[in-house]
């Protein structure tokens, strides 16, 4: 993919990821945030956090399935946007929902399993955002960095469980997110299994070759 195409793609992601926030601001200005604005803003931001997080998790599977490299160039940007949205989502909870009522918030984090899961999701994204620069990759070494960044899947699982646990009886949209996550994880696990098999075969072939026995 050409440099220009890559830049265009990234610009599209930037634009796309800012639309939900811009829409919220627009509704805010128009005083059109439903009768329960704080709840509406919280849930809208939660929805977009999870969507963008899943989109960032989809990039590697997309590369595996399509056999092209370009999705990887978008992974970091999407991941950072997911982190940005969860920060706003979290801030709305602190400022608008609880208005800095720390004891009550702390009680909720410990007592409400869905909030606990949300915090787990948020906290597992922090080291990823902190180590998202090229310099950090170099400093950590590619291998360690890759391992650390598997935390993104922890965040994905935590985000989905957060949603499953907060959704009222009767809602069904949370299952679509869970199904997407399962699919993405499935592709990655399938790929890992495939590679393990290939590696073992290659090792055996090498062993056979060094033992001087002709492979039929």
């Amino acid at each position: 993919m050409s440099r220009r195409a890559r830049i265009a793609l990234k610009a599209m992601i930037w634009g796309g990821c800012l639309v939900p926030l811009a829409t919220l601001v627009y509704w805010f200005v128009r005083d059109d945030l439903t009768a329960n604005p704080i709840s509406f803003v919280t849930t809208t931001l939660g929805d977009w956090t999870l969507r963008i997080l899943l989109a960032s998790l989809a990039m590697t599977p997309l590369r595996l399935v399509l056999g092209v490299a370009w999705p990887i160039t978008l992974r970091r940007l999407l991941g950072l946007f997911a982190f940005f949205y969860v920060c706003v989502h979290f801030s709305v909870w602190i400022v608008l929902d609880f208005f800095f009522d720390w004891p009550r918030m702390w009680a909720d984090i410990l007592k409400r399993p869905y909030i606990t899961m949300g915090m787990l999701g948020l906290l597992s994204l922090v080291p990823l955002a902190a180590t998202s620069t090229a310099g950090m990759i170099k400093r950590l070494g590619a291998r360690r960095w890759r391992r650390l960044h598997r935390l993104a899947y922890v965040a994905g699982v935590a985000g989905c469980v957060h949603f499953l646990w907060l959704a009222k009886v009767g809602r069904t949209d949370q299952y679509w997110y869970v199904a997407t996550l399962v699919l993405l994880l499935g592709i990655r696990l399938g790929d890992a299994a495939l590679r393990a098999v290939r590696r073992r075969r290659a090792r055996r072939a090498a062993a056979v070759a060094t033992a001087g026995i002709r492979v039929p």
Binding site: A35, N36, I38, L96, R104, A107, R112, Y114
Partner: peptide, 13 residues
């Protein structure tokens, strides 16, 4: 799954 200690009166902050 959630506390019933508080409520938001619609229209209030």
């Amino acid at each position: 799954r959630w506390s019933q200690a508080t409520e938001r009166r619609i229209g209030e902050f």
